[in-house]
């Protein structure tokens, strides 16, 4: 097998060549890469189609919402989720990319949690699917560690000054999922009905007060 050079100078040179010579349209650039990999025998395009389907249909924030709804209704599961989230989601059949070192953090009346990756854009794909674009932008990555309350306000979350904010910057292979608070007046709802109330943003931490009748 070929080996990387591990030489940043070599990479900078290659990036400069790619910058000068590749078409500027990203669709054409990705197509060129796909064609090359198919010709080299490294990917099967029909498998690629199915990966796109998987992350459009089955693997997405609906999985995370199932986990949260179960945590709201099943104290033993919630305790396992807090102590070993990787095992808890594996038991639900939701293992996958970035679920190997999963941590759950819970909101309370006096605490709000929000997740970011300032250095790249690490995200718990297996539970939340594809990351929103905003999560990957310079605006979110730069600001949410420094002025989380201002960013949350842009998302419509106005936190009183006496509610603490914990920002989790995913600098290693640990990935975070926020357990939002269960909305009031939802006592009679089933797990599936509760799951429908859980928003993707609430599991990232850019949403807080979930509504009983979403």
């Amino acid at each position: 097998m070929s080996k990387p050079s591990y030489d940043p100078k070599n990479i900078k040179k290659i990036h400069a060549h790619l910058h000068s010579h590749l078409p500027s349209d990203p669709a054409l650039r990705v197509k060129a890469l796909e064609t090359l990999l198919v010709n080299k025998g490294m990917v099967n395009p029909s498998n690629m189609d199915k990966w796109v389907e998987a992350y459009s249909e089955d693997v997405g924030p609906k999985r995370g919402a199932q986990v949260i709804a179960r945590a709201w209704t099943d104290p033993a599961f919630r305790a396992q989720l807090m102590s070993d989230a990787s095992a808890a989601v594996d038991a639900m059949g939701f293992s996958g990319p970035a679920s190997g070192h999963l941590q759950a953090v819970e909101n309370t009346d006096s605490l709000h949690n929000v997740v970011v990756c300032t250095l790249c854009s690490c995200y718990p794909f297996a539970l939340l699917g594809m990351a929103p674009n905003w999560y990957k932008t310079a605006a979110y990555r730069s600001r949410v560690v420094r002025e989380p309350r201002a960013v949350l306000a842009e998302f419509g979350v106005d936190l009183p000054a006496d509610v603490a904010v914990k920002v989790w910057d995913s600098t290693a292979e640990l990935r975070y999922i926020v357990i939002p608070q269960r909305p009031a007046h939802t006592e009679g709802l089933s797990v599936d009905e509760l799951a429908k109330l859980v928003t993707r943003n609430a599991m990232i931490g850019t949403d807080r007060d979930l509504k009983a009748g979403a």
């Binding site: 990705v30 890469l33 796109v52 992350y55 594809m130």
Partner: peptide, 8 residues
């Protein structure tokens, strides 16, 4: 192309 790249 987002999907193609993710799939690759």
């Amino acid at each position: 192309y987002d999907g193609r790249m993710w799939a690759i």
